[in-house]
Design a protein around this nucleic acid. Sequence first.
DNA 1: TCGTGATATTTTGTATTCAGAATTCATAGT
DNA 2: ACTATGAATTCTGAATACAAAATATCACGA
Lengths: 215, 215
Amino acid sequence: MPIERRPLREQIREELLTRLDRGDFVAGTDVNEAALAAELGVSRTPLREALITLAGEGVLESNQGRGFRFAPVSRKEFRELCEIVAALESLALDCSDPDHLRRIAPELLTMAQEFPDRIAEQQEIERHDDEWHDLLLSGCRNERLLDLITSVKAGMRRYAHLLAGDDTPLEREATEHRLVAEFLIAGDLPKAAQALRDNWVNGMERMMSRIPSTD
Amino acid sequence: MPIERRPLREQIREELLTRLDRGDFVAGTDVNEAALAAELGVSRTPLREALITLAGEGVLESNQGRGFRFAPVSRKEFRELCEIVAALESLALDCSDPDHLRRIAPELLTMAQEFPDRIAEQQEIERHDDEWHDLLLSGCRNERLLDLITSVKAGMRRYAHLLAGDDTPLEREATEHRLVAEFLIAGDLPKAAQALRDNWVNGMERMMSRIPSTD
DNA sequence: TCGTGATATTTTGTATTCAGAATTCATAGT
DNA sequence: ACTATGAATTCTGAATACAAAATATCACGA
């Protein structure tokens, strides 16, 4: 087996994203490069490279002379991101091999049904949801699109911890996933794509109230 | 007036993109950081920051230990990018204020009609096309989406110089722009969005033959 | 002639240093 | 008491230095 060797900047980026998921960072606050670098046990150089990457993904903002800060959250931006991901995942479905979709549809249905319990940890729920979406898009032949979706979703991670601890979304999520899977089994791609978009729109509406209304 | 002060990495990024437009770089070749930094008159640090940004936009690829290289072009990827931009611009139209669209529609029509002559320089044609699209999206309220479109289009610049010197696309381009504008004047958003998508699809098909078929 | 391995050179990835901008703090003047 | 001014400090942006990895060079032997 090949042992893992990737640039520090990528490892740092991932570490920062998982910390973001945990809600370790407060939106709107600025990054102290020296302190963060020391905490991570790296120098400022690869840290800054990771910060620049994250800024490109919308996780951070940068201002000349005053460094980086975690981009503030807002309902407006969250709505914007959901609209974008909905359109992109819908497109990904269009770019997928219909045969492949039919083949994985049963698996998607199973996953939707065995949706984790509401007592499950937030992290577990998110992991399960991610896996479902990953499987859904596994047949997409547009590689650039998959990369783009990953990148945009990184920008959404700032909102992850705001959702934590809400019950109602769960069964709703499961229901919609089931719906998408059933349409795929029936071979009705347009309906599946529509249901997928609805999933994002509803998810958005559901979470909206938990986001500070700074706008 | 406030004098312009932006980070070196951004200026470098732009310089590299304009050189890309000119076809100065050969796709698939790797970047020599020291040489390029010297040529630009900067140190490797901000250059690398720019390279990392461009890698995030798909202009470059990076491999552990062997630095950056200009991402190879392929018909497959070009098709993928066109599909993405078509979907995103179409979405941007959906996110736009209908009143604003009606208001700018005449201007869009005018611009489509006074499309630059075929003897105009390639650079001029591209500038005109960009301006048209910028105006079209000027009413989009989804700011994140606009940023994303800009970013994806940066990734497409690698293909810009491959198109240079082709005549036929010109009037076709103008026709489609006119079509979109006319639908907007008529207030028929869905048709306009469809025409816009067609513009990208047709543009893609037209250019396809000029891209080396490495895939 | 081709391949193999040791050595030299180049180039990247990361750390460190330096200069200048932004911020903070204290002090003087109103 | 409050504002303005300037020094001190902190932090970023950029340059330089260094270590490790990759590549090139070359000698040697099958």
